[in-house]
């Protein structure tokens, strides 16, 4: 599965890999949901450093996890977003509800309130 996960200081960090299309997203979604269920997390960070391609299915993946994290009372942040991805985020209005950071560390720090 093209997902790297790390759990640190109550924050689940998901490193996405490869191509985020409808086919890939169906499996990745279940994997992330499972990880969220297993941890009594306070926040979720999604890193897009290793994403080569994304379409609207990726937007659905992010918005779906946002819903899960909000219902849980957690915080969520995105990081390492390339220019083409940022364009999709802007187009969908996603940037109005989710912060994007340069690095995983910055996203972690924001969630931990440092």
């Amino acid at each position: 599965m093209p997902v790297e996960t790390r759990y640190e200081q109550g924050v689940l960090v998901i490193g996405l890999k490869g191509e985020l299309d409808h086919h890939a997203v169906e499996q990745i979604r279940d994997r992330i949901e499972q990880q969220l269920e297993e941890h009594g997390y306070r926040g979720l960070v999604m890193s897009f450093r290793n994403i080569d391609f994304m379409d609207s299915s990726g937007l659905g993946l992010i918005l779906g996890r946002y819903r899960t994290v909000m219902e849980h009372g957690g915080k969520m942040a995105l990081c390492e977003v390339s220019a083409p991805l940022r364009r999709l985020f802007e187009m969908s209005g996603l940037l109005k509800i989710l912060p994007v950071y340069e690095s995983e560390e910055a996203a972690m720090a924001a969630i931990l309130g440092a």
């Binding site: 997203v25 379409d55 299915s57 918005l63």
Partner: peptide, 14 residues
Amino acid sequence: ELERSGMGMTIMET
């Protein structure tokens, strides 16, 4: 129910 974002057509148009 499939978590579609509803942005596909907008993306194509853009």
